[in-house]
């Protein structure tokens, strides 16, 4: 009799855990993340990116551009706050900013931009061909608005932060405006 009660309670608590809501949008089914392979800059290995080589780590991804005045810096500042909320030990989490503006952003420049928000962040930029492929593979949109031959064009880009889990599955989409503490909470659960 008593063991049964214990088992029932355990079962309930497991259900309770499973139902705790995520702050990001849960992708279901959590399919393997699309390929993401960028050659990066030859002299800066850190700007090379092969997503499938990062198994074992949670990857936090954003597609933006370094001339972005509002949405990208707001997002990366939120990442930095989330990282601080996770405490001193943030091993096992990779924070990667990928430019979708290859006309203006070189890999090293995108990397320097990401590092302004936190030294642990990395950034890179694709070639035109790599960009085309990644937009298709990830089924996302990014395109210049205004005349791309002038310096003041803007770039439409994905709104969400993407989270790939340690098994390489595309698990979460974090909408803009999700609080840094809540992002930290989701990442803590995935790590």
């Amino acid at each position: 009799m008593r063991p049964l009660v214990v088992i029932t309670l355990l079962g309930l608590s497991i259900v309770g855990c499973a139902e705790r809501p995520w702050h990001g949008i849960v992708r279901s089914p959590a399919d393997p993340a699309p390929a993401l392979i960028l050659a990066g800059a030859a002299d800066r290995p850190v700007t090379r990116l092969r997503l499938d080589s990062l198994r074992g780590e949670v990857v936090v991804l954003y597609f933006g551009y370094t001339h972005c005045p509002d949405v990208c810096p707001t997002t990366l500042a939120d990442w930095a706050r989330a990282k601080r909320a996770l405490g001193a030990d943030t091993t096992g989490i990779r924070w990667i900013f990928v430019s979708v503006d290859p006309t203006r952003d070189l890999p090293a420049e995108a990397h320097g931009y990401a590092r302004q928000f936190d030294p642990a962040f990395t950034g890179t930029a694709p070639t035109d061909a790599e960009l085309k492929r990644l937009l298709t593979d990830w089924a996302i949109a990014a395109y210049p608005e205004g005349d791309p031959r002038t310096p003041d064009y803007t770039v439409a880009h994905p709104a969400h932060t993407f989270v790939v889990d340690a098994d390489g599955r595309f698990r979460l989409m974090i909408p803009p405006g999700v609080r840094a503490d809540d992002l930290a909470d989701d990442l803590r659960r995935l790590r």
Binding site: D70, V71, A141, A142, P151, T154, A156, P158, A159, P176
Partner: peptide
Amino acid sequence: AERAALHESVMEGATMRM
């Protein structure tokens, strides 16, 4: 700055635009 403008960031579907 070289130029200043009044802008608005707007989300259209899953895409952010200005």
